[in-house]
Computed example of a mutant assay.
Amino acid sequence: MTADTAQAESVAPAGWRRLEAKGFSELVGPVWFRKEAGGVRFGFRAEDRHANPNGVIHGGMLMYFADHVLGALAWHACGRRPCATLSMNCDFLAAARPGDWIEGNAEVTRKGRAVIFIRGMLEKDGAPILTADSVWKVIGER
């Protein structure tokens, strides 16, 4: 894949907006988002640089993206206050490859004052490729 091809493939489908990135997210992005009736959905275009030596998207990249998707919901659910991942368990269901458009969504399954439980899924072409369950700590709450 040439640099021009990689750049063209990093563009999102119509209706998606690029998310501002800082730090690590800037290195592995871009990440895109789209507002929907039920909240926000996130996506990214898998590139060669996201792949492992076997030519499939590295599990670490998928886990980063899942953490980003679930974390965005945790942040929103706690009133846009800082929060941190306490735990995240992922199940890999199918492979993704460079060029694939990968989307993620999540839902709060239980929420307390200091801890939030969230379940999410990553999909490719409408089919699940990863599920994740996570626990989030609202910073400053006991």
Rank of each mutant, 00 (worst) to 15 (best):
Asn105Lys: 15
Leu86Asn: 09
Ser87Asp: 13
Arg81Ile: 08
Arg97Glu: 03
Ala84Tyr: 07
Trp75Leu: 10
Lys111Arg: 15
Met88Cys: 12
Met88Ala: 12
Ile102His: 01
Lys111Ser: 12
Gly112Ile: 13
Ala72Leu: 14
Asp91Glu: 10
Ala96Gln: 00
Trp75Ile: 08
Arg110Val: 13
Ser87Lys: 04
Asn89Gln: 14
Val108Asp: 08
Leu86Pro: 11
Arg81Ala: 10
Leu86Glu: 10
Glu107Val: 15
Ala77Asn: 15
Ala84Ser: 15
Leu73Arg: 06
Ala106Phe: 03
Leu73Trp: 04
Leu93Arg: 02
Gly79Ile: 00
Ala66Ile: 06
Val108Ile: 11
Ala95Asp: 02
Phe65Ala: 00
Pro82Lys: 03
Val108Trp: 07
Trp75Lys: 02
Gly71Phe: 01
Leu93Val: 02
Met88Trp: 04
His68Lys: 09
Ala72Gln: 12
Gly79Phe: 05
Gly99His: 07
Val108Ala: 10
Ala84Gly: 13
Arg81Gln: 09
Ala77Phe: 14
Arg81Asn: 04
Arg113Pro: 11
Ala94His: 04
Val69Ala: 05
Ala96Glu: 01
Ala84Leu: 06
Phe92Tyr: 10
Cys78Gln: 09
Arg97Ser: 05
Leu70Trp: 04
Ala72Arg: 12
Val108Phe: 05
Thr85Tyr: 10
Ala95Cys: 09
Thr85Glu: 04
Ala106Glu: 05
Gly99Val: 07
Tyr64Glu: 11
Ala96Leu: 00
Cys83Asp: 13
Asp100Gln: 01
